[in-house]
Design a protein around this nucleic acid. Structure first.
Length: 591
DNA sequence: CTAGGGTTAG
């Protein structure tokens, strides 16, 4: 079949012949078409059905009409058998069956959907030779085809030509095709320019066209431009709808600009009488869950139920993730259970979120129970589900079980990824088996998974843990030559260990080095240093670090703070220290 | 009896 199609394609390169003798004969039989028996196209379910019907049609006398053949082609396209449709189109031409503009349009679409827009243009050439002129539909299809293979500039040029040479009047479909194509390929600015051009040429883009661009801008972090575009579209008399707003909300949420969502956008939507929908609410619930504001998420949930918008599986999945993040495992389980209770179908995410929650909250057995349940309820394990479970087992020091699961994963042909290997290495290092980590490193390379900076940070941490600070330091120095850029975590790990070992001078010089490399210490770094001093019972050394940390706008972790507090209470109180701590740490105000 | 697409998330 493939060969046949390829030879068809070769013929297109050579172009069509003029109308064949045979098709002229059919023209004379027009009246007979009316008597053509009706053909049942609804029975086409597979490529086989399509081809067998095609053969039957070819054998019919009188011949079925061109539209009848076109219907066959379009049914074949509908079942996504583009190669087959294209093959039949070619066969029609060879057998002398007349093809019209519509047939060629379908054939061009097949080429485009097969990522061969070039063949589409070859058909366009034949179309001209047959004395036809391409129309709006054909141009739209070709534009889509160009975007599909990433020929963005060509698409833009063609569209501009259509506008300036008035090759056809662009309609909503064409405009949307172009806007989506440009935005999906990161050309939001071009899209915006073209919107302007079209407005001037009085081809009015509709809400969908504008929304596509608003979405493109939002996705690229240009929410302010997106909001400006919304005000522009309103000025042009195009009202934004819930989809337009949802894109803006997502853009704002991605940038953490939650207050604008809450106090501007939602209010604006109510003012413009644009009702919020399931997607709006799910976005809100999701962002609130990720921020740990579960009570607000619950309010949103309650509100959507009140206005008769049913939460779906994704609403609950967000909630599970949020509750687990807060360690509220019971509430997470409640959300998990309400999925089935409400007659919703679980998805893999609801399970992985819940499993992750159990693992991170010291209930690996329950996690494993759910893990085993996944295939039984007809869901498929993923790399992520395995990764989470393996990580859980290793964190619980069940190294043997972790390994067993990894072997299991490979046996089930679920491919381990970078995360998997990093989890394995971390698990081994945590259990002081760093020598085992080296074969894992080799294994991942063999499987074509390249280690990243995280992998190396894990190894460095492992080396520090067994006291091989020299080796860790060596590895750090080697990283750049291996193409890895050390990050804050890399430095923090070593610096923390150096301080714990009392190698203060070396640690200090490393602090200077990281700063110089454009990788300044962050709150984790400072907390790690403070921890080391607490362990060494040298609070006077922790003091300047503490001040430096706050000067840079970072704060102590709750754990660090309470540990400091304990120390301060336990020892002979030095009021000086306490006063300084109080100044920077609001949580100590009442002490 | 015929063609192009339908804007937002997990």
């Amino acid at each position: 079949m493939r060969k046949l199609i390829d030879s068809s394609i070769q013929r297109f390169r050579r172009g069509f012949a003029a109308k064949s003798e045979a098709s002229r004969d059919f023209d004379g039989e027009k009246r007979q078409f009316l008597r053509t028996p009706t053909i049942d196209f609804s029975s086409i379910k597979s490529a086989r059905d399509a081809v067998s019907l095609f053969r039957k049609m070819l054998a019919m006398s009188p011949q079925p009409s061109v539209p009848a053949y076109n219907k066959l082609l379009s049914c074949t396209v509908n079942i996504e058998e583009y190669r087959v449709a294209f093959y039949m189109f070619d066969k029609m031409r060879l057998r002398g069956v007349e093809v019209n503009l519509c047939s060629m349009s379908i054939a061009i679409n097949c080429c485009c959907l097969l990522n061969r827009v070039d063949f589409g243009f070859a058909i366009l050439g034949s179309l001209f030779k047959l004395g036809y002129k391409p129309n709006l539909t054909i141009f739209s299809t070709l534009l889509k085809g160009l975007f599909l293979v990433g020929k963005i500039c060509e698409a833009e040029t063609l569209f501009r030509k259509i506008l300036t040479l008035r090759l056809c009047e662009p309609n909503d479909v064409m405009i949307l095709t172009v806007m989506k194509g440009l935005c999906k390929n990161g050309r939001t600015q071009t899209a915006r320019d073209l919107l302007e051009v079209m407005e001037k040429a009085s081809f009015k883009p509709n809400v969908k066209a504008y929304s596509a661009v608003v979405d493109g801008l939002s996705k690229n972090g240009m929410v302010d431009d997106a909001m400006f575009l919304v005000s522009e579209m309103i000025g042009k008399g195009v009202s934004p709808n819930v989809i337009t707003y949802n894109s803006i909300i997502q853009g704002l949420c991605n940038l953490g600009r939650w207050n604008e969502v809450k106090y501007l956008l939602l209010v604006d939507m109510v003012d413009h009488r644009v009702p919020l929908d399931l997607i709006t609410f799910n976005t809100l619930v999701d962002v609130l869950c990720k921020k740990g504001k579960l009570d607000e998420a619950e309010d949103v949930l309650e509100h959507m139920v009140r206005i008769d918008i049913d939460p779906n599986i994704f609403t609950y999945t967000s909630l599970i993730g949020g509750y687990c993040l807060q360690g509220k495992i019971d509430k997470a389980k409640e959300a998990f259970d309400s999925i089935a209770k409400r007659g919703l179908r679980h998805n893999i995410l609801s399970y992985t979120n819940m499993i992750n929650g159990y693992c991170k909250n010291a209930n690996v057995d329950e996690a494993w129970r759910l893990f085993d349940e996944i295939p039984r309820i007809g869901l498929n394990h993923t790399t992520v589900s395995y990764n989470i479970m393996i990580d859980g087992l290793f964190s619980d020091d069940r190294v043997a079980d972790g390994w067993k699961l990894f072997k299991d994963m490979e046996a089930s042909r679920i491919h381990p990824d970078l995360h998997t290997f990093n989890i394995l290495m971390e698990g081994l290092c945590r259990n002081l088996q760093i020598t085992e980590a080296i074969p894992v490193l080799r294994m991942m390379k063999e499987k074509g998974v390249n280690p990243d900076i995280v992998t190396h940070n894990i190894i460095i941490k492992g080396l520090c843990k067994i006291g091989r600070l020299d080796a860790a330091r060596n590895l750090l120095d080697q990283l750049p030559s291996q193409g890895f850029q050390p990050n804050v975590q890399t430095y923090t790990t070593i610096i923390g260990s150096l301080y714990q070992e009392g190698l203060d001078e070396e640690a200090k010089s490393l602090l200077v080095e990281m700063e110089k490399k454009g990788c300044p210490p962050n709150n984790v770094t400072y907390n790690a240093i403070i921890w080391s001093f607490i362990k060494r019972n040298e609070l006077y050394n922790a003091m300047p670090i503490f001040e430096e940390m706050y000067k840079r706008g970072f704060s102590a972790f709750p754990g660090t703070a309470s540990m400091l507090l304990n120390k301060l209470r336990g020892e002979d109180k030095d009021d000086n220290f306490l006063e300084t701590f109080k100044k920077v740490m609001p949580q100590l105000k009442n002490e």
